[in-house]
């Protein structure tokens, strides 16, 4: 089936590659975020320690952030309900899950799709693989701009980041804030991909104007 027409340029060396509609991936990546919020809440509600926290009083309480800012993320996902986690805890729990999922996907992708290419010479080589091949595979375009300070920090700018490309930018709708969780899975993908190429790094992403996204990669130097 996949021989019938010229296929997208990625992975052209693999004649046995099969394809699905891009919508499938889009839907999964969209729905991943609310699902993760749901799961984080359900697990929290069923874990014994958190109910202990609640009996101590959920106002004021332990963690850093107060209750007054906690509505932001809840409205972002529309899964408010009876919440026990405060905003920071919720953000961390969801970030941890989404980033972890992405990490595993990133690991697998590099294993699979760098199979037939020569060994990476240095970190920049690996980063370029992320910017070109990996980005093409997952986000269907290449990164628009790559900057580095030559001391282990790389900044990737994508001016039209696919997962954000169809998001509503209603002014006053806090679009940028609401888009943030949708960057966490891609963050994990990048970190996982680098890990598979032997590079330990932290990856952060942010958007200041949809649909652009900026990824900052800080590689951790290997201990001598």
């Amino acid at each position: 089936m996949s021989f019938d027409q010229p296929m997208p340029p990625f992975n052209a060396s693999d004649p046995s590659a099969s394809f699905l509609s891009t919508s499938c991936l889009d839907f999964l990546m969209i729905e991943l975020v609310p699902m993760t919020y749901r799961v984080a809440h359900e697990l929290d509600a069923s874990s014994p320690e958190s109910s202990l926290v609640e009996t101590n009083g959920n106002s004021g309480g332990g963690a850093a952030a107060g209750g007054d800012v906690s509505s932001v993320v809840a409205t972002a996902t529309g899964t408010a309900g009876s919440r026990r986690l405060d905003e920071d805890e919720e953000r961390d729990a969801v970030f941890f899950r989404l980033e972890g999922l992405g990490y595993r996907v990133g690991l697998g992708l590099v294993e699979r799709f760098s199979r037939d290419r020569p060994r990476f010479n240095d970190t920049l080589d690996a980063i370029k693989f992320v910017c070109k091949d990996l980005w093409m595979l997952v986000f269907k375009k290449q990164v628009d701009n790559l900057k580095t300070n030559h001391r282990g920090v790389y900044v990737l700018t994508d001016n039209a980041f696919r997962p954000l490309s169809r998001m509503s930018t209603d002014p006053g709708g806090r679009a940028v804030l609401r888009a943030q969780p949708f960057l966490w899975f891609p963050c994990g993908v990048v970190r996982g991909a680098l890990a598979a190429m032997g590079i330990a790094a932290t990856v952060q992403a942010e958007t200041s104007e949809l649909p652009g996204a900026v990824f900052q990669i800080k590689t951790t130097p290997l201990k001598q």
Partner: peptide, 28 residues
Amino acid sequence: WKGRIDKVNAELVTLTYGTIVAQLCKDF
């Protein structure tokens, strides 16, 4: 399918879905 569908590598979707299921199995 031939003419009007934007396509993505199937293994990427398989891997993503598999990771989701594996994570859910672990979570629950």
